[in-house]
Write a protein that binds this DNA or RNA. Sequence first.
DNA 1: CGTCTATTTGAATGTACTCAAAAGCGGTGG
DNA 2: CCACCGCTTTTGAGTACATTCAAATAGACG
Lengths: 194, 194
Amino acid sequence: MTSDERILQYLSRYIKLDKKEQHFFTGLLDCQEVKKGTPLLKPGEICRQQYFVVEGCLRTYTVDEQGQEHIIQFSQSDWWTSDLYSGLTQTPAEHGIDAVVPSNIIMLPFEKMEWLYAEVPKFERFFRILYQNAIVSHFRRTRESMELTAEERYIRFTERYPDLQQLVPQKHIASYLNMTPEFLSKIRHKLAHR
Amino acid sequence: MTSDERILQYLSRYIKLDKKEQHFFTGLLDCQEVKKGTPLLKPGEICRQQYFVVEGCLRTYTVDEQGQEHIIQFSQSDWWTSDLYSGLTQTPAEHGIDAVVPSNIIMLPFEKMEWLYAEVPKFERFFRILYQNAIVSHFRRTRESMELTAEERYIRFTERYPDLQQLVPQKHIASYLNMTPEFLSKIRHKLAHR
DNA sequence: CGTCTATTTGAATGTACTCAAAAGCGGTGG
DNA sequence: CCACCGCTTTTGAGTACATTCAAATAGACG
């Protein structure tokens, strides 16, 4: 299946498009196959598009004043990421985005969004639902970061994303869970010896 | 100005409604004046509506396994809150919501949402934009909780919400910033002695 | 095979928490 | 109007969870 077919199939879970609408939509897209480590957005650049993951995994991260990276989210198949604030306001991005494994992605430019909403208003609905779901995820992440200890966060992570475990380097998981790689290593040691 | 007029004025920043649409929308709403401390949603209940703050301030919090409360967000004038996941799936809420000061609120039931979207599709757009903005806020909150120390988080908070400072008890601010009230007190002591 | 990066391990340190007690503050009733 | 009660905030001592730094080991990739 092509990437365009994949994203249309994904969309069909939320909105029904006729052939003409499908064609209009896919006309706005850029597809790209990227290697592991390929940067899609560098912090400080202006974010031009939203990224949809067909296959693979992206990471969205920030860099703090000490130069430390913090991973805000991983995005696997059928999920989106972007620096929304940068894209909406056309200001320099606070976030970076890159591929943690070889990935197959689709890009939807911000500058075409209003056109898309005007031509196919169903996309207002689609993104309303998409963002709604994203908020639910963000709430959960905030809650877990407040309620749980480092060890508990790691256990939850392995339960929720058993596959990511194998896919991404441990230091990235540590970064996502807001702990040092050394400490994650010690947690894993402790858990293994039970 | 009535609460209905207030929310219509607020909406006009995002979508243009004609008289009939305005009337349809306000017909779905319930207004309520609540006293300080009034619970709007208790953890474990099913969340029936989204809450819009006309005047005052709400807090949305969770309770962890040890019975500790953690404030996820404060909602002041012209902002919304809810337990989206509970409302969308009609499952018991993970969050609680109550008024931290006497407040004037408007409620929009989840069960009327699909009707609203069908009758006035502009609301798909409105909520798309609303949720988009919410995601931007959540990203920032996640980023700051990862990058900053307790002291830095408190300083940012006072800069961003100088008014909340006076409005809500210090222990709530500590909870929102994910630290103990004792520690916040020590931070304030330290900052005052400069 | 060698180099470069990721992971592990250990010791010392620090940031933030727990527990306990005192002080402050606001409302209520005598 | 003042005394008392409950709740919030402050203060201090001891502790714990997690970090930092350094070095050794293991793994991945050309």
